Amino acid sequence: MQAHEDPAVTDTAHRHHHHDTPGDFVAAVEHASNERGLRLTPLRREVLELVASAGKPVKAYDLLDRLREKHGNAAPPTVYRALDFLLENGFIHKLESINAFVSCHHPAESHQVPFLICDICQGAQEVCDERVAQLIEAQAEAMGFRPQAQTLEVHGICKNCR
């Protein structure tokens, strides 16, 4: 499932550099961490690699199972602390409706993005068009509402599963 590719959309949408491989993504996160003075510990990096290489949204307990294959004593708080760090710093996103995590297509910048989630294959695609978040913020402001977080998840069936 690809984001909308209408020229009218991409010309006005903010352009982002998408990292094609899990290794490219992890390298981008390492670079962003170094620039911001953050500590990407070996465990945080390993959890990040697992999320990036999953290819679709992954649940915390699935990550825990994968960690236990290498580190038999991995415990849930260990995974959740690593996920919290990655979330807080914008390196991954949490898909609330399916309680799963995905890597962020552009980890070097702060942003709010909606997701298209396939109910058949569980694939998720970021919609990289900042106008969606801006529209929601403008509507909230017009209603006197001050948003603190924004999560928009659209469920349906992707092109490959139709």
Rank of each mutant, 00 (worst) to 15 (best):
V29I: 01
P42Y: 00
H16W: 10
D24S: 10
R131M: 02
H18G: 10
E35C: 00
I120R: 13
V58L: 05
T78S: 15
G37W: 07
D119Q: 13
V29M: 03
P107Q: 00
E46V: 03
E130G: 11
L135D: 13
V29G: 13
R36A: 14
T21M: 11
L135V: 12
H155L: 11
A8N: 13
H31R: 14
E137A: 15
S97L: 15
C161D: 03
I157V: 15
S97R: 07
F145K: 10
E141P: 01
S33Y: 04
N89S: 03
T41E: 06
P7T: 03
T12P: 00
H106N: 07
T78W: 03
H93G: 00
A82W: 12
S33G: 12
L50G: 11
Q148A: 13
A74Y: 00
L38F: 12
L38W: 14
Q150F: 11
Y80A: 03
R39I: 04
G156H: 01
E5V: 01
A28I: 12
V29Q: 02
Q134D: 09
A54T: 04
V51P: 06
G72T: 12
A8M: 11
Q2E: 13
G23P: 00
V132T: 08
D65K: 14
D129H: 07
E88K: 15
S103E: 09
F145Q: 12
E96S: 05
Y80T: 13
R162T: 13
S33E: 05
H106M: 01
D129L: 01
T78N: 10
Q112L: 01
P114C: 08
L95F: 04
I120D: 10
V154W: 07
D119G: 15
R81A: 14
P42C: 11
P114M: 02
D84Y: 06
D20A: 11
